[in-house]
Write a protein that binds this DNA or RNA. Structure first.
Lengths: 339, 339
DNA sequence: TTGTAAGCGTTATCAG
DNA sequence: CTGATAACGCTTACAA
């Protein structure tokens, strides 16, 4: 059988299809690309011929002739972290639907490596580029490039670039409002690494919600530290010791929340009855292992990836959107803040 | 300045470089590709010209002319899991070094989707293919393809295919031998999901080491369950209750180990003094959060990815290795099994 | 509606 | 060592 090949061994090309269908290559091309200038009956003959031969258009040839590579580049700086992956999945999802492929490059936070990959991708004439940062702090713009670029997760410092970001401010606010709605009012804030914009914004959002409710956090201020369980334990121990009246903890990440939650339990505080604990990131493996399971703020990263890809395809099709888009976060309530 | 372009706005092409260097395109091509048939002085002139114009060879044109796309396809079935990522990183690493790019496709365990991506990649005439499975159980072969294929993590069912796999048997053995060396002899085995080959092989390896030492596991047999902390807690509680003499636990994963470790501690058993706990996978975030930090068996997945890529490039260069390669695991001792 | 022919930017062959 | 010239497989005016 002739799956994937012409009469001999080589892969079928358009000319083979055309010959079998009894038309010219030009017509075969139009038929297969759904151009309107082709009789329905002819199109069918061409399509059958293509199928019979297992014809797969040679993408590089199409690229050379048409100018479009049907390929986008994805430069990530955090492949091993867990933020890139959902973004990447979202982008790949949208791309796959539009019959475009994704070239993946891992720059590992190194701008030299980024530059190298940038050149590689430009040399492959990608139709566009998505750059995924390792953290939400703004990053230097790549400047003017021959193709559209979308910055995901880490926005470009240049507001004229197209960026898609998380909404950590709203996330922090959402966290506190959830706890307030549950009747908690002595709320402690255990933040992440103060060097990270995400840590500060989550705190800012939480503080605003508290202020609007006429409250302030237990201890008067948020405790910044590290993105680790260890820090969650230390901070929780400190707050529980100094402010035993605390009835809720907003944590900068699920890992921190996990440490805080376990410390509270070890000290005999029932979660959520006596102390509610809320995390950020909604990281399944961390929150599912906790007892009770962790409530968390989800950043909707996969949606972020989809949006980034959608914006990129828009720009490729001539509709640039030079601004920053914010993806809303959402609360995922579980046992650690149950009623 | 003329960065990335000829006199006008368009990107420079080989002809521009050739003209500026005062040679023919053919010579320019040879010079830039380090062909031997070119005078050193000429080569230099061409290289300078290329630099001055910011010349980036058009990959699709090269592809069309040379037959090599300098691109490999990577189909993964477990993007969101944590096994694919290091493999992917290793492969990307090797590829980047060889100036080839990686087209990423996420098939999500769905063979329809896999088939779709396979066609896309073949249509892009990738030079080769790496297929990464979601688990170590053998998977159906893709059969004869026009390009070399390497199966990573999940081997092909066909031994004539090229596969690269982990060594879970040795991992299980290594785990027990480590504990024996530490003087433990009443060792319990808390395994993962029995439906997974990895779970069974880890147990097999552990059992062999025990048998060779003239021992059998506490309780007489391994306890299979799920890949979760929850299962780790349940199993540990059961063993501790029924066999209080247990002095070590080999767990099927770090998540399981984490649950087991915490349960031991909650029941007042000192880790590692009274009970040593050993995990599998060496998942930093899980093992680092545990107190004490978890000893674990590392599968060397990044190395697995590198090997897969190296084998693929070998096959592309005409040196196929139709067999299965096993990547050794390694023990990473930490506090949970300290002296 | 279909076909002819001219590229697209590079590499490969072979003659100088 | 260098340079014409012919591919590579497809798309796209433009002509029929």
């Amino acid at each position: 059988m002739a799956v994937g090949s012409a009469a001999d061994g080589r892969p079928a090309r358009l000319a083979d299809v055309a010959r079998l269908a009894g038309v010219s290559p030009a017509t075969a091309s139009k038929a297969l690309n759904n151009r309107e200038q082709v009789r329905a009956e002819t199109r069918e003959r061409v399509v059958s011929a293509a199928e019979a031969l297992g014809f797969r258009p040679h993408n590089s040839a199409r690229h050379l002739a048409s100018g479009r590579s049907r390929t986008i580049g994805l430069i990530t700086h955090d492949l091993e972290g867990r933020f890139s992956i959902p973004i990447l999945m979202g982008a790949e999802d949208v791309a796959g639907t539009g019959d475009v492929s994704v070239l993946l490059c891992d720059a590992r936070g190194d701008s030299i490596r980024e530059q190298h990959h940038l050149h590689t991708l430009l040399s492959r004439r990608v139709d566009g580029l998505i750059v995924v940062g390792a953290r939400t702090d703004p990053r230097p713009s790549l400047g003017a490039l021959p193709v559209p670029v979308v910055y995901a997760y880490a926005p470009s410092e240049d507001p004229q670039d197209t960026s898609v970001v998380t909404d950590d401010l709203a996330g922090g606010r959402m966290a506190v409002e959830h706890l307030l709605a549950l009747g908690r009012s002595r709320i402690g804030i255990v933040a992440g690494d103060i060097d990270f914009l995400a840590a500060r914004q989550r705190v800012d959002g939480a503080m605003r919600a508290l202020t609007e409710a006429g409250l302030e956090p237990v201890g008067g201020t948020a405790l910044y530290g590290a993105w680790t369980e260890e820090w969650g334990r230390i901070a929780a121990a400190s707050i529980l010791g100094r402010h035993p009246e605390v009835d809720a903890l907003v944590c900068g990440s699920d890992l921190i929340a996990r440490g805080a939650l376990e410390t509270a339990r070890e000290r005999g505080r029932a979660v959520p009855q006596e102390i509610a604990v809320l995390g950020h990131d909604n990281w399944g493996l961390i929150s599912d292992g906790a007892r009770p399971r962790l409530s968390s703020i989800d950043l909707n990263l996969e949606e972020l990836g989809r949006r980034a890809a959608a914006l990129l395809f828009g720009a490729i099709d001539g509709d640039p959107r030079p601004r920053t888009t914010t993806i809303p976060s959402r609360l995922v309530p579980r046992g650690s803040t149950a009623g």
